[in-house]
């Protein structure tokens, strides 16, 4: 049991599905506040990312869990994470 736990902790997929996947979902949700259209009431960019957070997380989680090629997972994480992180950082620095 303990060796299984240790091997899981050293497994990249564990981190991608768990903490990193959750963090990515949070980053995408926050980033959406800056690029998602505000809609007629100019609130959709705030409200819809909050509503869609569970779906965002589930999508990221199942992709990271089921995709056999780790490189592809890292690429998708980078594609989603880097632009959203850059947008959030730019918002704070400006």
């Amino acid at each position: 049991m303990s060796s299984n736990l240790l091997s899981n902790l050293l497994n990249a997929r564990f981190w991608l599905c768990g903490p990193l996947g959750f963090l990515l979902a949070v980053v995408v949700m926050l980033g959406m506040a800056l690029w998602f259209p505000g809609g007629a009431a100019d609130i959709d960019n705030i409200v819809l990312p909050l509503v869609l957070f569970p779906a965002l997380w589930a999508g990221i989680f199942f992709f990271a869990y089921l995709e056999p090629r780790l490189k592809r997972i890292w690429c998708v994480f980078a594609l989603l994470g880097i632009p959203n992180t850059a947008l959030i950082a730019a918002q704070f620095w400006s």
Binding site: G39, D42, V47, L48, V51
Partner: peptide, 18 residues
Amino acid sequence: KPALGKVPSAGATAVSLM
């Protein structure tokens, strides 16, 4: 008033259904 915002929107509808 809609549930959220000044005018009806997709976001307000989604939240009010939760």
